[in-house]
Design a protein around this nucleic acid. Sequence first.
DNA 1: GTCTATAAGAAGATAGAC
DNA 2: GTCTATCTTCTTATAGAC
Lengths: 199, 199
Amino acid sequence: MPNEKANKPSKKVKRSHNREQPLLDAAAKLFAHKGYKGTTMRDIGSEVGMLPGSVYYHFKSKQEILLAVYKLAVYSLKTRVEEAIAEQEDPWRKLEVATQAHLEAIINKNDYAQVMTEIKPHKAPEIRSELTAMRNSYEAIFVNLINELPLKRDINNKLFRLMLLGALNSVKTWFQLGDIAPEDIACEFIRYLRESSEA
Amino acid sequence: MPNEKANKPSKKVKRSHNREQPLLDAAAKLFAHKGYKGTTMRDIGSEVGMLPGSVYYHFKSKQEILLAVYKLAVYSLKTRVEEAIAEQEDPWRKLEVATQAHLEAIINKNDYAQVMTEIKPHKAPEIRSELTAMRNSYEAIFVNLINELPLKRDINNKLFRLMLLGALNSVKTWFQLGDIAPEDIACEFIRYLRESSEA
DNA sequence: GTCTATAAGAAGATAGAC
DNA sequence: GTCTATCTTCTTATAGAC
């Protein structure tokens, strides 16, 4: 199992100064705002005051950067959502706080979360399966949360989950500040689904 | 009001043979599958057996092609959805058939619809406002359909619409044939929303 | 209306000096 | 660890022959 470096915050810093984190932050920001194809190695480098050639000292390709960004995105989102649900008992309330955490992440300040929800795996075909696997590993949280709900027999859990996540991930395309708070959007989405589907 | 050529099927063909339509079809297909940045003028030309230089006889830029594709997408989707709802009386049933028509378009064989729902306006910043306006003109159908529903007072119509359309437009990221039919997905989505929100 | 040819620039990536 | 310099390829777009 090679290439385990960004799976969690690791103690062993590769060499002396760690310039990888700033580079990944820059890449996440640019990927989130300009897309994968729309972001160049020059953009990423210059965002941290580095020339394009130097970026290749830290990452051997653009794909490798996307992979590392995705990995951190999954780790950060998972952590955030799991912390939120740990404080709750009621299964509907758990789902509610999970969607709130998810939505706040993709709306506010978390470029990593936006990359994971916005950049579709097929944009980088060579690493498509790795990206998809990482997405699924995050969405597994929602699989479990929804399995714990007391739902009517004729509700398709998978469809229910995909509907909710699809709606959530589309929010950033129309969201603008002042309209309605992310937490409230999440509450409303759950509310619009709950009464129809609860057993 | 210049540039009205592709608003509807127009009688006055620009010159003799009309090679614009095949070019737009090719562009729609490529934009839908490889994205706007991921599609080149070479790709578009070679898809209809034309060299890149020749494409510029018909369209002066890549942006202009995207604009024309979007225009046809709106026209085709609008027509399709409006035909579907014209046959119905009940407001919930109207919304149901509209979502079915929308979903079938983006799942099956309609590359134009996929371009409109997949390519976000900000991917082509110079024509962003035109693209957004076209999207809104299509979504206005759903604004009206939802306004006609007998909804509880505390349901936010706008949020309801964005939730539904967000869920619908995300279907193509996970849909695969044999799983469940597009029409059924649309029915289920409406069903999951109806009981919670109906007055 | 399509071709050839090419401009002019930007992309991902590498080699080697410092 | 970063820079300079560069290779190679690909990009959008244009000019002019046919």
